[in-house]
Design a protein around this nucleic acid. Structure first.
Length: 488
RNA sequence: GGUCGCGUGACCGAGUGGUUAGGUGGCGGUCUGCAAAACCGUUCACGGCGGUUCGAAUCCGCCCGCGACCUCCA
């Protein structure tokens, strides 16, 4: 087992990862709110925690990965009187709320498949856990950290803060929050403006509501994660992840709720991915600068100079460390596109290399560097740079400037397969097999004619063939003993 | 205003108290009928001003600029 270090938001330090019940690991990540299409921003946590999931499994852990679907309770406006986002969408589109949920959940899953993001072990819906959420509220009420008023239940932050520390995760101090919280309308019910809803009474026209002992209403918007993580991972579990924009108030409230209900903190390691920016600004749906994944893959957006392959996006994200912001631009994307191609080409070369008696390269050292980088808080950027160093070595062997023995060769192949495909998930989807085979044979045939032309010094014909194939997206490489080609 | 974080070469983006990140792009070369690819070489930066140190881009202070959170948000 590797010594794996994680940057823990709550301590602001890198800490050695030690699961509560090894080899089992419980991982909870905040998933999407399914009221709209997934955009570039959503790929950051999806890929970051997919990387974590894959790496933990790779180094021998047995991971239960829970990623929720938020389909109730997130309020639209800044006041508590807002309308449920999904309900609003449903009303506008004249659909059943669950129809909206199903539609965008399907779209999300499709996008995740395109990005080769593994399915989580459990994907619970908030709407499927209303009873559990009500029970959780009861526990908080019993423990005295919540109060009921007019059919709604609110978390009593001030009282909680007397025995615990509200703000522990995000580094906030309640006294500061008191002076800084904006005075919003419609908060008259709450004792304090920073109190948050656990259960909210719904108005009659509110189309998503459930009965409860307090009122017909809906659960508060931070509750589902506390409840579902507890249900599927236990009262204490290993890792909770999510976007850094959820740190406050969402995750802070989760800490408070769980502590208030269970008498202890649930989460051992908090991990937060940074954001995707556009011209240095956060990309967000509500900010109106989000590029949806469908637009990204089709190139159908005014900011996109061309369509990009899902693997280009995946690689682009992996080339940065997850805790840094990542600025989007066509230039950067195209650099990633070419970089990924070089990496994958190098791997194809690796598969073809013939072993020699001795090795001029140190595979063990390369391998150790890769693990060292990954063990340092999932530094995929560093790992990739090591893999490029290896590609240079592979190419030098292929061009006869180095050599590798049988043992090293197998180890090297193993290293690249497990890192590039297994851990980074950079698999290129293949075309339909039969068709691929046929077109491959046809291209071979054409290139054999070209070879003939070259032998006869008929370079005009030879160049014409190459030009035409290039136009079709086929790249030709002339070799000493023939040719190579690939589809771009 | 409060809290937190960032500022790296043409672009993206790692990192460390003293040694080349890496990718993309540019330039020169090897190879080649010409290309492409590959390889070799080159392009050696760390916002500003002070301080600590034998030595700092890396630690500390101040300043400037930018961002995130404080309201749903990945």
């Amino acid at each position: 087992m590797q010594d794996f270090y994680i940057y823990n938001t709550i301590t602001r330090k890198k800490e050695k990862f030690e699961p509560i019940n090894p080899p089992h690991v419980g991982l909870y990540v905040c998933g999407p709110t399914v009221y709209g299409n997934a955009h570039l921003g959503h790929t950051r946590p999806a890929i970051t925690f997919d990387l974590l999931f894959r790496y933990l499994k790779h180094i021998g852990y047995n991971v239960r990965y829970v990623r929720n679907i938020t389909d109730v309770g997130h309020l639209e406006s800044d006041a508590d009187e807002g309308e449920d986002k999904i309900a609003k969408r449903a009303r506008i589109e004249k659909l059943e709320p669950m129809e909206v949920v199903q539609y965008y959940t399907n779209r999300y899953h499709q996008n995740m498949r395109q990005l080769n993001v593994l399915e989580p072990s459990i994907e619970p819906h908030a709407s499927g856990h209303i009873i559990e959420q009500q029970e959780f509220i009861k526990k908080i009420l019993e423990n005295g950290y919540a109060y009921e008023i007019n059919g709604s239940v609110y978390f009593d932050v001030e009282k909680y803060n007397k025995n615990y520390r509200y703000g522990k995760l995000s580094g906030r101090v309640l006294e500061d929050l008191k002076s800084d919280t904006r005075q919003l309308d419609g908060q008259s019910e709450k004792k304090n403006p920073f109190d948050f809803a656990l259960w909210k009474k719904a108005s009659p026209e509110h189309i998503m509501q459930w009965s409860s002992e307090w009122s017909s209403g809906f659960p508060g918007w931070h509750l589902e994660c506390s409840v579902m993580s507890t249900k599927y991972l236990g009262e204490q579990f290993d890792i909770h992840g999510g976007g850094i924009d959820l740190l406050f108030p969402h995750h802070e409230c989760e800490v408070a709720q769980s502590t208030a209900a269970l008498g202890k903190e649930s989460v051992r390691y908090w991990m937060h991915n940074n954001l995707v920016t556009l011209n240095g600004r956060k990309m967000g749906k509500s900010l109106g600068n989000a590029i949806s994944l469908d637009e990204f893959f089709s190139g159908d957006h005014k900011l996109l100079k061309k369509p990009y392959h899902p693997m280009t996006l995946r690689f682009f994200i992996l080339q940065a460390h997850y805790r840094s912001t990542l600025d989007f631009s066509n230039e950067a994307l195209q650099a990633a596109e070419k970089g990924l191609e070089r990496l994958l080409d190098g791997m194809k070369t690796l598969e073809k290399i013939k072993p020699s008696a001795k090795s001029t390269l140190n595979v063990t050292e390369l391998k150790e560097k890769c693990y060292k980088a990954m063990n340092d808080d999932l530094n995929s950027a560093m790992t990739i740079s090591h893999l490029y160093d290896g590609i240079r070595l592979i190419n030098s062997v292929e061009s006869g400037k180095g050599s590798i023995n049988d043992n090293d060769l197998n180890e090297l192949k193993d290293l690249y397969r497990s890192f590039v495909f297994g851990i980074f998930g950079l698999d290129t989807p293949r075309n339909a097999k039969g068709e691929e085979e046929l077109s491959g044979k046809l291209i071979d045939m054409i290139l054999n004619f070209r070879l003939e032309a070259q032998k006869n010094k008929d370079f005009q014909t030879s160049d014409n063939i190459r030009k035409t194939l290039n136009k079709l997206g086929i790249e030709i490489k002339d070799k000493k003993d023939g040719f190579e080609w690939k589809i771009r």
